[in-house]
Design a protein around this nucleic acid. Structure first.
Length: 230
DNA sequence: TACCAGGAGAAAA
DNA sequence: TTTTCTCATGGT
């Protein structure tokens, strides 16, 4: 992954969309709850679910654990997959309490913290990295479907790379930089939802002149390029 | 009407 | 080991 090209794409995204000021939450715990609820779900639906949940209980781990599972699922209903997410949120809260809460888990090193999060059922790589970057401010790059799609359209990814390969490629190219990772991922999501959202999906829309990151990515465009060669 | 959204885990091949 | 299926609401 070429650092200059990656920086050029970031600069183009920032110029096009401006700072995103992520994550839209008040506390680290709210970030983590949101990370679970936003799995494969539009953020507007997550906001509805959070409103329903906080109308019933204070937003903390013990209050969620004290809420009967059926009531938790009912509160989460607008975010979709509500039965699944109720179980996942409860499992996460159990894990968090077992680790001594947000304070306790904050004391762990990044690698160990990531391992603990991934050990919880329902917390996969992207959700764990959302938490690490946006709740704990650790230098971990978040890879999501928009990252694969947008960077793939720019020729910086083939689409065949695994999650860890993409994450380590970004981190190696950019160096440990929490504010940069924060803004970069937020901008990729914003861009994916905004400019590159076409119906039906156009695999090349980012390469069209009206896409603000097209030029930045074009210099690195190579349909057969791989992470390692860029 | 059909598709998609800031995934993850279980089941099947 | 890799691929497919399931979970589900709300916007376009």
């Amino acid at each position: 992954m070429n650092p200059e090209r990656l920086r050029a794409v970031f600069d183009a995204l920032l110029a096009a969309h401006g700072p995103q000021h992520w994550w839209p939450a008040e506390t680290p715990f709210e970030v983590m709850v949101g990370a679970v609820l936003t799995q494969n779900t539009a953020w507007t639906n997550v906001e509805r679910a959070l409103e329903r949940l906080t109308a019933r209980i204070p937003l903390d781990a013990q209050a969620i654990l004290d809420l009967p599972l059926g009531e938790l699922a009912q509160a989460l209903q607008p975010s979709g997959y509500f039965n699944v997410k109720a179980r996942r949120l409860r499992a996460f809260c159990e894990g968090l309490v077992a680790e001594g809460g947000v304070e306790g888990i904050s004391a762990l090193g990044t690698g160990e913290l990531r391992g603990r999060l991934l050990a919880i059922s329902g917390i996969g790589p992207e959700t764990a990295d959302d938490m690490l970057l946006y709740a704990f401010e650790r230098p971990v790059f978040v890879v999501d479907a928009y990252t694969r799609r947008t960077l793939g359209r720019l020729g910086l990814l083939t689409g065949q790379e695994g999650y860890e390969a993409i994450r380590s490629a970004f981190e190696s190219a950019l160096g440990p930089d929490v504010p940069l990772y924060n803004e970069y991922h937020a901008l990729i999501v914003r861009h994916g939802k905004d400019v590159c959202r076409t119906r039906p999906r156009c695999p090349e829309c980012a390469l069209k002149p009206d896409c603000p990151v097209a030029e930045a990515g074009r210099s690195g465009f190579s349909p057969t390029a791989t992470v390692g060669s860029l």
